[in-house]
Simulated scan of single mutants.
Amino acid sequence: MHQELAARKHDVVTVSRTGGDLQYDITDPAQVAEMFQTVGQVDAVASAAGHVPYKPVAELTADDYQAAFTGKVLSQVMLVKEGLTHVTGSFTLITGVLAREPIVTGAAASLANGAVEAFVKAAAIEIAPQRINAISPTVFTESLDVYGDFFPGMKPVPLADVVQAYVRSIEGRQTGQIYVP
């Protein structure tokens, strides 16, 4: 995504826990606030972060569900909340196919993805003129060797198609959309 956006004349600042231009943990709301103070005004935020546990429902604990919520939902919600005074254009969050097509061991992921999608639709009607959308891919073609068995019968999506969905969200005018590449 970074290379495509840079090629389209965007100045890109990458953030992750351990790499990128800046190191922040978006599961920590204080670090999200600090990140925006460091970066200042930006046109857009694009999130591709989110971690959830995969276990059978009978084995999922309250801590597992909390980890899914914190790792994928709350982290992205706080990106939006803290970014409202720093982002002039759009927020693009990541969700996934499990919001609408559950798999065995994916209950926590389905819960988190569905929550992100509901938040995007709700936030869109409140944050105008800023925009918010989400990208909801299936399994990436490039990761089929590792994750393909978890997504039987689902058509994989090339990473390049996912990147184009981010471009559409960032450069387009729509809001409250869930893009399915």
Score class of each variant (00 low, 15 high):
residue 3 Q to W: 00
residue 3 Q to V: 02
residue 6 A to P: 00
residue 7 A to N: 14
residue 8 R to C: 12
residue 9 K to E: 12
residue 10 H to L: 06
residue 11 D to W: 02
residue 11 D to M: 07
residue 12 V to E: 05
residue 12 V to K: 06
residue 14 T to V: 07
residue 15 V to E: 01
residue 15 V to S: 07
residue 15 V to G: 08
residue 17 R to I: 04
residue 17 R to Q: 11
residue 17 R to K: 13
residue 17 R to H: 05
residue 18 T to N: 15
residue 20 G to H: 07
residue 21 D to N: 15
residue 22 L to P: 03
residue 22 L to K: 13
residue 24 Y to C: 04
residue 26 I to Q: 02
residue 26 I to K: 04
residue 27 T to G: 10
residue 27 T to C: 12
residue 28 D to A: 10
residue 29 P to N: 12
residue 33 A to T: 13
residue 33 A to N: 07
residue 35 M to E: 03
residue 35 M to W: 03
residue 39 V to I: 15
residue 39 V to K: 10
residue 40 G to W: 06
residue 40 G to S: 06
residue 41 Q to M: 13
residue 41 Q to N: 06
residue 48 A to P: 00
residue 49 A to L: 12
residue 50 G to M: 05
residue 50 G to P: 02
residue 53 P to T: 09
residue 56 P to A: 13
residue 57 V to T: 14
residue 57 V to P: 00
residue 60 L to Y: 09
residue 60 L to H: 10
residue 60 L to V: 08
residue 61 T to S: 15
residue 63 D to F: 01
residue 63 D to G: 06
residue 65 Y to A: 04
residue 65 Y to M: 13
residue 66 Q to F: 02
residue 68 A to S: 02
residue 69 F to Y: 15
residue 70 T to Q: 13
residue 72 K to S: 12
residue 74 L to N: 11
residue 76 Q to P: 03
residue 77 V to C: 01
residue 77 V to E: 00
residue 77 V to L: 14
residue 78 M to C: 03
residue 80 V to E: 07
residue 81 K to A: 12
residue 84 L to K: 11
residue 85 T to G: 10
residue 87 V to L: 05
residue 88 T to V: 06
residue 92 T to F: 01
residue 93 L to G: 05
residue 94 I to T: 11
residue 94 I to C: 01
residue 95 T to H: 00
residue 96 G to N: 01
residue 97 V to S: 06
residue 97 V to A: 05
residue 100 R to E: 14
residue 102 P to F: 09
residue 102 P to G: 08
residue 104 V to L: 13
residue 104 V to T: 14
residue 105 T to F: 01
residue 107 A to K: 03
residue 109 A to M: 04
residue 110 S to V: 04
residue 110 S to C: 08
residue 110 S to R: 04
residue 111 L to T: 14
residue 112 A to Q: 04
residue 113 N to T: 01
residue 115 A to R: 03
residue 117 E to A: 08
residue 118 A to E: 04
residue 119 F to V: 09
residue 119 F to M: 11
residue 126 E to G: 02
residue 127 I to M: 14
residue 128 A to G: 13
residue 128 A to V: 11
residue 129 P to N: 03
residue 129 P to F: 03
residue 130 Q to R: 15
residue 131 R to V: 12
residue 133 N to H: 03
residue 134 A to N: 02
residue 138 T to F: 04
residue 138 T to L: 07
residue 138 T to P: 05
residue 139 V to A: 12
residue 141 T to G: 03
residue 144 L to N: 05
residue 146 V to M: 09
residue 146 V to T: 15
residue 149 D to Y: 02
residue 150 F to G: 04
residue 150 F to M: 14
residue 151 F to Q: 04
residue 152 P to Q: 08
residue 153 G to H: 07
residue 155 K to P: 00
residue 156 P to A: 08
residue 157 V to K: 04
residue 159 L to C: 07
residue 161 D to C: 08
residue 161 D to H: 12
residue 161 D to K: 14
residue 162 V to T: 07
residue 164 Q to D: 13
residue 165 A to E: 05
residue 167 V to K: 03
residue 171 E to L: 09
residue 171 E to M: 07
residue 172 G to M: 09
residue 172 G to R: 06
residue 173 R to E: 15
residue 173 R to F: 11
residue 173 R to T: 15
residue 174 Q to H: 06
residue 174 Q to C: 01
residue 174 Q to E: 15
residue 176 G to N: 09
residue 176 G to C: 12
residue 178 I to P: 09
residue 179 Y to R: 02
residue 180 V to D: 02
residue 181 P to W: 10
residue 181 P to V: 10
